[in-house]
């Protein structure tokens, strides 16, 4: 039986890959969660300093290659661009909670060698979405909450029942 894509969280942030703040999309299937990074360019003071001295490429190469998350091969997506992939069957602990900087996702799992791995990401609604909803009369706080709750619903649907049952969720 094939792997089924459950949904996509288009915007989240994490410092996991390089220790600096980076944006990523989170694609969730019924078997795994993939943090797909937008580029190899982290965001932070150190990165910004490097960015200044980087030779500016022409606008055509500056534009990222769009990924069609509906059709992209999941095995390819899992390994491209240093993306992070977590098998749901290996998850030992999952926490989705509200923090100071937004809603955070914490996943603790064991890899094939039995080594503990942690995924930590902040599910923050993109500012364009918040602006759009604000213009429709939805307060910014509510727009962010709705986005985070949709993301939570996505994880609840995708996780195996044993993981979902043990997990900590936002009320």
């Amino acid at each position: 039986m094939g792997e089924t894509r459950v949904g996509l969280i288009p915007y989240a942030t994490t410092i996991m890959r390089t220790g600096q703040l980076e944006t990523c999309a989170i694609l969730v299937s019924d078997r795994r969660t993939i943090l797909a990074f937008d580029s190899r360019r982290p965001l932070g003071p150190r990165a910004a300093f490097k960015e200044f001295f980087r030779k500016e490429p022409d606008p055509a190469s500056e534009a990222p290659q769009p990924v069609d998350f509906r059709t992209v091969d999941l095995d390819v997506l899992a390994v491209m661009n240093d993306n992070i992939s977590v098998q749901h069957s290996a998850i030992e602990k999952l926490e989705y909670k509200k923090g100071l900087s937004g809603y955070s996702l914490f996943i603790e799992s064991r890899n094939l060698e039995g080594k503990k791995e942690i995924v930590l990401a902040t599910i923050a609604a993109p500012s364009d979405l918040v602006k759009k909803q604000k213009s429709e009369g939805v307060p910014a706080k509510e727009a962010k909450r709705q986005y985070a709750l949709k993301a939570q619903e996505l994880f609840k649907r995708a996780m195996p029942s044993v993981v979902a049952h043990k997990a900590r969720w936002v009320e």
Binding site: G7, D38, F49, F52, L154
Partner: peptide, 30 residues
């Protein structure tokens, strides 16, 4: 600041190429 501004510009391009809101796919198998 200048590097950060340029990075934000890049991020904007990335954002434009992605959907804004959380998407639930209908049961699609690869």
């Amino acid at each position: 600041y200048d590097g950060w501004k340029r990075h934000k510009k890049h991020e904007e391009i990335v954002r434009e190429s992605k959907p804004l809101d959380v998407i639930f796919f209908d049961s699609e198998s690869r």
